[in-house]
Design a protein around this nucleic acid. Structure first.
Length: 223
DNA sequence: ATCCCGAGGG
DNA sequence: CCCTCTGGAT
């Protein structure tokens, strides 16, 4: 595959975007969240744990965590040091343990023990900023509150020139403008899988890429 | 802008 | 050794 002509008009950019979306859906038709969870609470906890950590590592610690602390109430009254010991291998364990215990307390005290269904409310929960909130609302409840911008989505959006921003909040704003709302949730999951197996950070496998013909990141050396 | 922080890959 | 992994709070 040789050089790729860049779209000049809005119509051409839209056409290119939809080719990208079609190719992603062809390769990842029914992808969903890779964090194991039984309900919205467990998904929130798993997502907090996933910061700067692989999903495989998170899935190794959550079974023990939810065995020792089966319910939100159990974690609300848990010893933070005890929680941090269980989740140690995920890194940032002191901050994450505080967030998890604080989240349990906040949700019980402020929301009657129910995970909030609006992003405004969810953002008041310790450890839940836009990325985590979008994961929980989108995956657990099917509510498209935004586009999940994690390390993969941010990197690939930049490589595909879907944004010029590096700030995740700004990247999300750009993606929300160009993507149809009914694709927000699926798009995020697709890019996360795509970023894990092909469009990896260090040495992307462009030779196996289904959208190589729609990408011009190679000659830009974007990270 | 800085700090938090372990584990795996290259 | 250095880089990366489904970030968030200060």
């Amino acid at each position: 595959m040789s050089k790729v002509s860049r779209p000049r008009t809005a119509a051409e950019r839209k056409e290119r975007l939809y080719r990208i979306l079609d190719a992603l859906s062809l390769r990842y038709p029914n992808v969903t969240c890779a964090l194991n969870h039984a309900d919205a609470w467990q998904l929130l906890v798993a997502t907090i744990l996933s910061a700067q950590c692989t999903d495989a590592r998170v899935n190794m610690v959550t079974p023990e965590l939810f065995r020792k602390f089966p319910t939100m109430q159990d974690l609300a009254v848990a010893d933070v040091r005890e929680v941090s010991e269980v989740i140690r291998s995920t890194g940032f364990f002191n901050n994450k343990a505080k967030s998890i215990v604080g989240a349990a307390r906040t949700i019980i005290q402020d929301f009657g023990g129910e995970i909030p269904r609006t992003i405004e409310q969810l953002l008041t929960v310790p450890g839940a900023a836009r990325k985590t909130s979008n994961v929980v609302l989108g995956t657990a409840f099917g509510i498209p509150s935004g586009v999940v911008v994690d390390t993969h989505v941010g990197r690939i959006a930049l490589r595909l020139d879907l944004t010029k921003e590096t700030n995740p909040v700004k990247v999300e704003q750009d993606l929300m403008k160009i993507l149809p709302q009914n694709r927000w949730i699926l798009f995020s999951h697709q890019l996360i899988h795509f970023g894990r197996e092909l469009c990896v950070a260090r040495k992307p496998r462009c030779g196996e890429c289904p959208i190589e013909g729609l990408c011009y990141a190679k000659d830009k050396a974007v990270l």
